[in-house]
Amino acid sequence: MTEYKLVVVGAGGVGKSALTIQLIQNHFVDEYDPTIEDSYRKQVVIDGETCLLDILDTAGQEEYSAMRDQYMRTGEGFLCVFAINNTKSFEDIHHYREQIKRVKDSEDVPMVLVGNKCDLPSRTVDTKQAQDLARSYGIPFIETSAKTRQGVDDAFYTLVREIRKHKEKMSKDGKKKKKKSKTKCVIM
């Protein structure tokens, strides 16, 4: 069974824990209790493949930012979460993405942009803004509501699919490099 290491990042209060708990335990946590770091595991079937999701729910508070490099190193894919009623959390996505790329030393890291709290009427981040940002990053965008469960499975499952595509691409690139290195030079 394939294991996928997913990391949920975003500013404090955007609903990272609520999304994760909704996926794992099928219930909505409405009281806000700032996370330092929590880890969850769940076995699911995605596109006919049974897999184990190892999900790291991270601290959004700035005082825990020193811990970010460590979990970013171990993560295979990242859910970059903002709240649709919090423009600052949307603007912060850029910083999370840049930090992930720096730590992973790669421009090509599996990510999904997630606009959470889409059940709320007080939207300050337009869907088109988020779609445009995701398009500019070359990553999928999904709106979710941890409260109603809308888009929750889709967000995590899409990230797994992005990781699969990335692994497939990397193995193809690896095979191309191996083929090239088999060419021999004969000096007579």
Rank of each mutant, 00 (worst) to 15 (best):
E63G: 08
E63S: 08
E63P: 12
E63V: 03
E63T: 05
Y64D: 14
Y64W: 07
Y64Q: 14
Y64V: 09
S65Q: 08
S65Y: 06
S65R: 05
A66K: 05
A66E: 11
M67G: 12
M67L: 06
D69Q: 06
Q70Y: 07
Q70A: 07
Q70M: 09
Q70E: 12
Q70C: 08
Y71Q: 14
Y71C: 14
Y71R: 04
Y71G: 14
M72W: 08
R73C: 10
R73T: 10
R73W: 05
T74V: 07
T74A: 12
T74W: 08
G75P: 06
G75L: 04
E76Q: 09
E76V: 15
E76H: 10
G77V: 12
G77C: 09
G77Y: 04
F78P: 00
F78H: 02
F78M: 04
F78C: 03
F78Q: 00
F78A: 01
F78W: 03
F78T: 02
F78E: 00
L79I: 14
L79V: 08
C80Q: 02
C80M: 12
V81E: 05
V81H: 03
V81F: 13
F82S: 13
A83W: 01
I84N: 15
I84K: 13
I84M: 15
N86S: 10
N86M: 03
T87A: 14
K88C: 09
K88M: 11
K88E: 12
S89G: 06
F90D: 03
E91R: 04
D92W: 15
I93Y: 04
H94R: 12
H95S: 12
R97I: 15
R97C: 15
R97L: 15
E98I: 01
E98H: 02
I100Y: 02
I100D: 01
I100A: 02
I100L: 14
K101E: 08
K101T: 05
R102L: 06
R102T: 09
R102P: 02
V103P: 02
V103R: 05
K104T: 13
D105G: 14
D105L: 06
D105N: 09
D105Q: 10
D105W: 03
S106N: 11
S106Y: 10
S106F: 10
E107L: 10
E107Y: 10
D108C: 06
D108F: 06
V109L: 04
P110I: 02
P110A: 03
M111D: 00
M111P: 00
M111Y: 02
M111Q: 01
M111N: 00
M111S: 01
V112L: 05
V112R: 00
V112A: 02
L113K: 01
L113A: 04
V114K: 00
V114C: 04
V114N: 00
G115A: 11
G115M: 12
G115K: 02
G115E: 04
K117Y: 15
K117Q: 13
K117M: 15
C118N: 11
C118V: 09
D119T: 05
D119L: 03
D119P: 03
D119M: 04
D119G: 08
P121A: 10
P121Y: 10
P121W: 05
P121V: 10
S122V: 06
S122T: 11
R123Y: 09
T124K: 09
T124W: 07
T124F: 09
T124D: 13
V125I: 10
V125S: 10
D126G: 08
D126N: 09
